[in-house]
């Protein structure tokens, strides 16, 4: 297919599938349990921009000098242009085909996560783009198409425009970079997880290479990354495996799929779960093994997002820990 590729059949190509997408393809090839799905490649984004003449219009908007006071307006203007433009039929056909293939294999009701994957490696120069937009719990083709468009639009968010201004202040000429970025979009079966979180294969609090750090909570993992709760904090010793420290968080709320669809909601957590550690020893051991394997494979400490549903561990993302200063 020209615009859409199944994760299990694709090759990791940064320009076509973005950083996060290529990384997931790598994980699947390594035999890691990654939720199945497909990638809407940067070819789709390019065709959409070209067919709708959006590229020229955005270039024109961004060519006029702007200040921080203008970014909300400019971002809104570009967002409206995206929303008025139609996704080309050829792309919709391929997305539909891919979805039907997944639906055929899954008689039960399933929902999808839609995540952005820009064609930049995770690095601090691009942390606005590396900062993933995720749209969870999409159930229909219409919802998925809308979320794909929202991922594309996120390249021109107020934060991204402010970021470019900040770079200009520092006399780096980065003005046209937003329109040069390409966005792939990952559509995956969503893991409606009971437990989720992040795993760093070094202890990022003190940079100890012989320790791992885990943040974990009940429900979907976005409450950990967006700081809407205080997750549990667990420090493991790496060699040999040992649980060194468990600090129970304040898990008053948890994120769950909205029963009405197309979003997630925060609900109160059961009182008996708020002060209970969200991971048991055997789950910690599984995470430890995942961390050891991925760190060895990528030959660098990893920042891993994971989820557990019905005792099965899923890997949602693995990327290098960007802040480490290692003498390699």
């Amino acid at each position: 297919m020209k615009y859409v590729e199944f994760l299990s059949e694709a090759k990791p190509l940064l320009n076509l599938f973005g950083g996060k997408g290529s990384n997931l393809i790598d994980l699947i090839r390594l035999g890691i349990n990654v939720p199945p799905g497909f990638i809407v490649s940067t070819n789709s984004y390019n065709k959409f921009l070209g067919d709708s003449h959006l590229r020229d219009q955005i270039n024109q908007i961004l060519s006029i000098e702007y200040t921080q006071k203008d970014v909300l307006n400019i971002s809104e203007k570009i967002k409206n242009l995206f929303q008025k433009s139609r996704i080309p039929q050829e792309i919709i056909y391929e997305i539909k085909d891919a979805l039907y293939e997944i639906w055929e294999r899954n008689p039960d009701k399933i929902s999808f996560s839609v995540r952005s994957s820009a064609n930049v490696e995770d690095s601090k120069e691009f942390s606005f783009a590396g900062q993933a937009e995720s749209y969870l719990n999409n159930q229909t083709l219409e919802e998925i198409l809308k979320s794909i468009k929202n991922c594309w639009i996120s390249l021109f968010s107020p934060q991204a425009l402010l970021y470019i201004l900040q770079m200009q202040k520092k006399k780096k000429n980065e003005k046209k970079i937003l329109i040069d970025l390409k966005m792939a979009v990952i559509v995956q079966q969503m893991v409606d997880s009971q437990i989720s979180g992040v795993l760093f294969t070094v202890n990022v609090l003190n940079n100890s290479l012989n320790q791992m750090l885990i943040n974990s909570t009940w429900g979907l993992g976005q409450t950990v990354t967006d700081s809407s709760i205080i997750p549990d904090l667990i420090i493991l010793n790496k060699d040999p495996f040992e649980i060194m420290k468990i600090i129970i968080g304040k898990k008053e709320k948890k994120s769950v799929p909205n029963p009405k669809g197309s979003s997630t909601i925060l609900v109160d957590n059961k009182p008996e779960l708020q002060n209970k550690c969200s991971l048991n020893e055997s789950e910690l051991y599984d995470l430890y093994n995942l961390g050891v394997k991925l760190e060895e494979y990528f030959n660098y400490p990893q920042d891993i997002e994971w989820a557990i549903k019905d005792n099965i561990l899923y890997t949602l993302q693995s990327r290098p820990i960007t802040s480490l200063k290692l003498n390699k």
Binding site: G197, N215, V224, T225, S228, I229, I230, P231, K250
Partner: peptide
């Protein structure tokens, strides 16, 4: 709120 794995951290 949040912890070591939050985006801000």
């Amino acid at each position: 709120t949040g912890s070591a794995g939050s985006h801000l951290a």
